[in-house]
Design a protein around this nucleic acid. Structure first.
Lengths: 152, 152
DNA sequence: TGTAAATCCTAGTAATTTGGTAGGGATTGA
DNA sequence: TCAATCCCTACCAAATTACTAGGATTTACA
């Protein structure tokens, strides 16, 4: 029941990107350096974010990535789902009407899985990237020394 | 970001146990048969539930398990945490004050992980076992044929 | 008192997922 | 041209998951 590094690194990377891409595209190597993430691994994460339409890439020298959408229209849910696939801890076909549930009357636990899935999705969807970027900017002012992050 | 079979099977098993243990202790083999779970695997899950103080065991012939607490005092959260360990998708030391966070000012994403953790815990803690047992009993009446569950 | 029904405890293991690394190709600005 | 950059695919070691396996212990009951 853990969020993998894909989601954790990826969200941090996108917050970083949002902050630094206002003027020019941001390269993978610069994000990787600032965030302490493997360049090669981050490359794969950015590919997923691109495929999901959250970032645009600019190839060639001086290239990099920029957000593909307004920073306030991107939710944490968008980011995490792009990277982790579906965030639902239980894949229950009964929850997706089109699939149909093989249990005749529906299972007892369906209700539980539904509530969990809903609460996670709702939580991550209501946090938008702009808020995190603001907070990150504010924190940089107060930051004296030491790490900006702790692996999460 | 998936709930493992430990949590999924275990919750089903405990609902089953709650239903059938009103008169006499319920054996692992009978739960396993009804729920279509490996007996040997379920044994390990029950050990965890026992260690967590959710069930009591009665050894020897005619023995089995019974709930250790009132059915209405056991939450889905109690069950899932007993089986899965901690349900929090992100282990963030900054969220547990006694541990302290290695990032100087705390990380930006801490807020996100906190919200996710809270929403999951809140959701599973407010669903109590008695409600699921009631629902299960009600469903058995309507059940005509076919599976009672779908693997979740 | 013997035996079968049960829980208890520990170890092993195949399959899958995670968290990367590695190699090379394609594009583009200077 | 050449260096910086993204793009694509494959590979791999370590960890985790979902079991299986073997046996020890306890207890009701004939």
């Amino acid at each position: 029941m853990k969020l993998s590094t894909k989601g954790r690194y990826g969200l941090r990377a996108l917050i970083d990107l949002a902050q630094y891409s206002e003027i020019e595209p941001v390269s993978i190597s610069s994000i990787a350096a600032r965030q302490g993430i493997s360049e090669r691994y981050l490359e794969q994460l950015m590919a997923k974010l691109k495929k999901a339409g959250l970032v645009k890439s600019i190839r060639g020298a001086g290239g990099g990535y920029v957000l593909a959408r307004e920073v306030e229209s991107i939710s944490v849910g968008d980011v995490l789902r792009a990277l982790e696939g579906n965030l639902e801890p239980v894949e229950c076909s009964g929850l997706h009407p089109e699939e149909g549930c093989e249990a005749a009357g529906g299972c007892v636990t369906k209700y539980v899985w539904q509530k969990i899935n809903e609460s996670i999705n709702q939580t991550v969807d209501e946090i938008k990237l702009d808020r995190l970027v603001e907070e990150s900017k504010a924190m940089k002012g107060k930051q004296i020394s030491g790490q900006m992050h702790c692996g999460n």
